Every structure is written in structure tokens, then in C-alpha cells.
Simulated scan of single mutants.
Amino acid sequence: MTFSIAGRCPDTGQIGYAVTTSSVCVGARVGAVADGCVVFSQARTDPRLHAVGLAAWAETGDAQATLQAMHGAAVAPHWRQLGVLAMTGPGWHLTGESCLPHCGGMLGGHSLALGNFLGSADVLPAMIEGFETGSGSLAERLLAGLKAGEAAGSERDPLQSAALVVLGAEGLRDVDLRIDASSDPLAAMGELLADWLPKAPAYRLRALDPDAAPSSSSVEHSG
């Protein structure tokens, strides 16, 4: 009962994902990213599969092998929806036969969309188009993908939560935002992202070169 999108930006080297669902706190359960690879476990979610996937990616550097490792470790895989997108190469996905329709996955040039219990078959292609034709930062394009999916049919129950994560250079998360409970989580995420993005470079600088970083007051009033 979830739809999600992973995306990458060859120009910046960033990779990340966005996800929304009709229950609270989706960011605690769906999606993980590390070392140039996003993994998803959703539908009847087992968050432990994210660690399995990232470990397989670290060992093999192969997205297909990563998906196979997650599938092989899954209890009752017919209830699981799994996905992998790396910084290069095609994405991979698998939807178990017990996942509720509309359900499945779709690939874009630099993206992977997954969903189950969707309101229409148009949600996945709308997410891919929203991301691939969007403008702005990777985070803004990921959120655009979710909003396009919402407009095309969303899921069958009202959305309640969302999460947005982007991994940048030096292993730092440029974006790591959650809306855990809201009657309009994508609108709330848009407001939070707009507040965060102007401040993000200063917080990155604090990690890499704290002597050159602005003061707390400068960060809080930037943008």
C-alpha cells in the first residue's frame, strides 16, 4: 500500500529515493541508500531486507545480484515488493504474486518506480515521467515524481506519511526528511524541502570543513 521512486543524477553523483503510503512513519520501514545504491522492501515490508541488499551490493557491486540476495532472504516472498537502483546500469525490481493490484515496477532512464494497491495503472508511468522530465535538484525531481503519481491515482487509501533521502558525495546525506503523520504528506514534504535546501550546503560544509562553516544563526536564517 505504498508507492516509491528511486532516482540518480549523473551530473552531481547524487542518488536517492522518495516514498509515500497510507500508514504513518513510512520512512522507518521503506527504503535505504548507501554507496551509490538504493534498495526497497515494501508491500508487506520487511525492513531487514534493506541491510541484506546493501551488504550484497557492497560485496558484488551488481544490482541484479543485490535483488536476488534480497529475494533469497525474504520470508514469504510472494508478499514482498523489492527494488534496486544503482548509480549506473538498469534498475531491477520484483513484485510478489500476493501484492495487491494495481502493483508492479517501471524503469526510467535514471529512475525506478514501485507501487502496490494503487488507484490506477497510470501511477507508475506518471511517476517516471514526473521525475525524468522534472527540473531542479534531485530531491525536487523525486518529490515531483511522487506528486505526479498522486495526481494519476495515488493509492486507494488516503496518504499519511512520506520520506525523502538523497545521498551525495563523501557519503553525506544531502537530504534526509520525513513526514511521519499528515493529512497531506506530500504538500508537507514540499514545504519542509523548500525550507531545508537553502541550508543544506552549510551543513555539508560543517562536516567537511567546520572552520569555514557559517554560524548557527547564519544557517538558520539562510534562504
Rank of each mutant, 00 (worst) to 15 (best):
F3N: 10
F3M: 12
A6I: 00
R8P: 03
I15T: 01
I15F: 10
G16Y: 06
Y17F: 15
Y17H: 04
T20V: 13
T21H: 13
S22R: 11
S23P: 02
V26A: 15
V26M: 14
V30S: 05
G31N: 10
G31H: 07
V33Q: 00
A34F: 01
C37Y: 05
V38S: 00
S41D: 15
Q42A: 10
L49P: 00
V52E: 11
V52L: 04
W57N: 01
A58D: 06
T60E: 04
Q68M: 05
Q68W: 02
M70K: 08
H71I: 08
H71T: 02
A73C: 10
H78T: 14
W79Y: 15
R80A: 15
L82Q: 06
M87Y: 11
T88R: 04
G89H: 04
G91K: 08
G91H: 10
G91Q: 09
W92T: 13
L94S: 13
L94D: 14
T95M: 09
L100T: 14
C103R: 13
G105C: 09
L107F: 01
H110G: 04
L114Q: 04
L114R: 09
L114V: 05
G115P: 11
L118D: 11
S120T: 08
D122E: 15
D122G: 11
L124G: 03
L124A: 03
M127L: 12
E129Y: 08
F131I: 01
E132C: 06
G134M: 07
S135L: 02
S135A: 15
L138T: 06
A139S: 13
L143R: 07
A148Q: 00
G149P: 12
G149E: 07
E150Q: 15
A152M: 02
G153N: 05
P158I: 13
P158S: 09
L159K: 07
S161D: 11
A163H: 04
V165G: 03
V166G: 04
G168K: 12
R173T: 10
V175L: 08
V175Y: 02
D176G: 04
D176W: 08
D180I: 13
A181N: 14
A188K: 01
M189R: 11
M189A: 09
L192E: 05
W196D: 13
A200Y: 05
A200S: 10
A200M: 07
A202H: 02
Y203E: 05
R204Y: 09
R206F: 03
L208T: 12
L208P: 12
D209M: 08
P210D: 04
P210T: 03
D211P: 01
D211G: 15
P214R: 10
S222F: 13
G223A: 10
